[in-house]
Write a protein that binds this DNA or RNA. Sequence first.
DNA 1: ATGGTAATGATAATTCGTTATCATTGTAAG
DNA 2: CTTACAATGATAACGAATTATCATTACCAT
Lengths: 144, 144
Amino acid sequence: MELRNTRQKQAIREAFSEAARPLSPEEALAYAQAHYKRLGIATMYRNIKALVEDGWLLPVEVPGRSTRYEVAGKRHHHHFHCKGCDKVFEVEGCVASSKPRLPRGFRSTSHEFYLFGLCSGCSARNKQHSKISDHGGRGETSVC
Amino acid sequence: MELRNTRQKQAIREAFSEAARPLSPEEALAYAQAHYKRLGIATMYRNIKALVEDGWLLPVEVPGRSTRYEVAGKRHHHHFHCKGCDKVFEVEGCVASSKPRLPRGFRSTSHEFYLFGLCSGCSARNKQHSKISDHGGRGETSVC
DNA sequence: ATGGTAATGATAATTCGTTATCATTGTAAG
DNA sequence: CTTACAATGATAACGAATTATCATTACCAT
């Protein structure tokens, strides 16, 4: 398997490379169809599965949303989920220092940090059309 | 609606109060049936929905899992998801200080921090029966 | 105690994301 | 150029979580 190099596979890899943010299968389909119009959703699922097994893609599980996928090998980072357009973005840096105290006997092996809010596009759109429901910061976020 | 005080409703509220951790509808059903045996799952879903609307319950969305619910009004905290038993626990304290830098125009309104690993029960069980797959810390967790 | 009706319980139906099926297509080895 | 068969595309099927349906139950104002 995965021995023939099809236009579909190329289009799918290009989609994830270009996007530079985690994509859902449906989102990836839209991006990839810009490269190869007749691409089907089944092929997208099949190839995502294969690319994850190959280690080329990594699943990104967002709370309350379906799984997104991003190209593997990036520096440690976290994710921002836009409530407006439902897109997920990468966030550079990390929530350094502090170490949460776990109850006795608990062993933690990994963690995830998510930010929620409005991306630049939705933030601007929101500001134009209504004055309410925008209580965000200004490029920075206080953590707790 | 929500004007009659049934044994089912009492049992459901007691279940969430006693558990002191976020419960899935199925988990909550098991707890509540200790108080009222003939409780059905449909009633659980109906009441969870009502209690969320009332603000008595809060949804807790865990990456890659179905939604859990916890009683509202608690101090700021985060969650620990046990890979062994799939239960979600509360974690006191927070990942203080640092502020991730967001791209221009992004506005963040909230955040979530998740820890993954093994709870005390699963950790002990794991240590007994096999020596592998436990690379956790000792009650503390380095963040990044 | 009685009765109107909110609430319940069993289960059918729905939704969403994903996987399976299978006839057809097109890559690439010979 | 052929040709085998990996891969695709359309869509059916699936599984899990949740919601809808509806006959029955039981809360509580009277």
